[in-house]
Computed example of a mutant assay.
Amino acid sequence: MLTLSINGQPRQFVAPLTVADLVQQLDLLGKRVAIERNGDIVPRSTFAATALAEGDQLEIVVAVGGG
């Protein structure tokens, strides 16, 4: 198991895990999301290649449209 902090809350996932896998598991596919890992923005183009590690701190923001 892999323990990650997501928006300040500890969550456990089965390893290995990439940012793309995480987006899928959190049901965020197709949504406009910004992900920060340990203080650095993860570019969307690198989601599939960015492996997550035990203790990573993630901040995930989902863009919401409206008017």
Rank of each mutant, 00 (worst) to 15 (best):
M1G: 15
M1V: 06
L2T: 09
T3I: 03
T3D: 05
T3H: 09
T3P: 02
L4Y: 12
L4A: 10
L4H: 13
S5T: 15
I6E: 04
I6F: 11
I6V: 15
N7V: 10
N7T: 09
N7L: 09
Q9E: 12
R11P: 02
R11F: 01
Q12G: 10
Q12T: 15
F13V: 14
A15R: 11
A15S: 15
A15L: 02
P16S: 12
P16R: 07
L17R: 08
T18G: 11
T18F: 03
V19I: 10
V19A: 05
V19Y: 00
A20Y: 02
A20C: 03
A20R: 06
D21Q: 05
D21C: 06
D21I: 03
L22D: 02
L22W: 00
L22E: 02
V23L: 02
Q24P: 00
Q25T: 08
Q25F: 02
L26Q: 04
D27G: 10
D27A: 15
D27F: 05
D27Q: 15
L28M: 07
L29H: 09
L29C: 13
G30R: 11
G30C: 11
R32E: 05
R32H: 08
V33L: 00
A34Q: 09
A34K: 09
I35Y: 04
R37H: 05
R37M: 06
R37V: 12
N38G: 11
N38Q: 11
N38M: 02
N38V: 10
N38P: 08
N38D: 13
G39R: 06
G39Q: 04
D40P: 00
D40K: 02
D40L: 01
V42M: 10
V42W: 09
V42E: 06
V42N: 13
P43R: 12
R44P: 02
R44I: 09
R44M: 07
S45G: 06
S45C: 08
S45P: 01
T46R: 14
T46N: 11
F47K: 07
F47S: 08
F47G: 12
F47T: 09
A48E: 08
A49C: 01
A49Y: 00
A49I: 00
A49W: 00
T50Q: 12
A51N: 14
A51P: 15
A51E: 14
L52V: 13
A53D: 14
A53R: 14
E54A: 14
E54F: 07
E54I: 07
D56Y: 00
Q57R: 13
Q57T: 07
Q57F: 00
L58N: 14
E59T: 15
E59Y: 05
E59F: 05
E59L: 10
I60G: 12
I60P: 11
V61A: 10
V61M: 03
V61I: 12
V62I: 14
A63N: 03
G65K: 01
G65E: 06
G66T: 00
G67S: 14
G67Y: 08
G67M: 05
G67K: 12
G67P: 13
